[in-house]
Amino acid sequence: MSALTQLIRREITGAWQGGGGPLMACGFLACAAVLPPLASDAGPGALVEAALPITWLALALASLLSLERLFERDLDDGSLDLLSLGPAPLEAVVLIKALAHFLANGAPLALAAPVCAVSLGAPAGAAPMILLAALIAGLGFTLTGTLGAALALGARRGGLLIAVTVLPLLIPPLIFGAAATAQAAGGGDFGPALILLIAYTLFALALTPLAGAAAVRAAQG
């Protein structure tokens, strides 16, 4: 058991420190959320309308950051081989890497998302729902992104490949998450959208360890 604890610690410190930790992700979120209002000459009313969509778009884009390094770094320095020869199956290693990446990137982004949305003009009352939806969607983003990173392993320009393959897969959680927060902001029923969002994340949770481990094995061969 202590071996797994050690792996979790190693992955979290790696994700937190390795340049581009939570601060970088939140900084990117802020930049991406500030650009659309500057590019638009519509009045403040339109901005309030767009506050939630802009936040979700920025969240999805920010969640792609540093996915490239998730496996690539370990493949380049040889530690991916070591991780394969340890006591835990590769599936568990992939899951732990994804969760550590979520703790260092997805969770801080989810904390920043309500601040971002409210400062763009979303009602403050919607903040708790934005936080909740961003946490669940963020986990889904990270898991899907982890699978993309494993599949792109060993490819040249892997970062770009990950973005192009993963972004379309983030459309469902983007739709469900945005719908849940919009319903909550408008006083409507956010239940169905939130349940679909949870379903997407659970699906990714089941798929990513298996498919990700298979992709990593293929890259090691």
Partner: peptide
């Protein structure tokens, strides 16, 4: 490849390898 992360301290890498393997 030595399986060592460039940015990590030797002490941490050793401790991890010993526990993991």
């Amino acid at each position: 490849l030595d399986g060592l992360r460039p940015g990590a301290r030797v002490r941490d890498e050793l401790a991890f390898h010993a526990a993991w393997l």
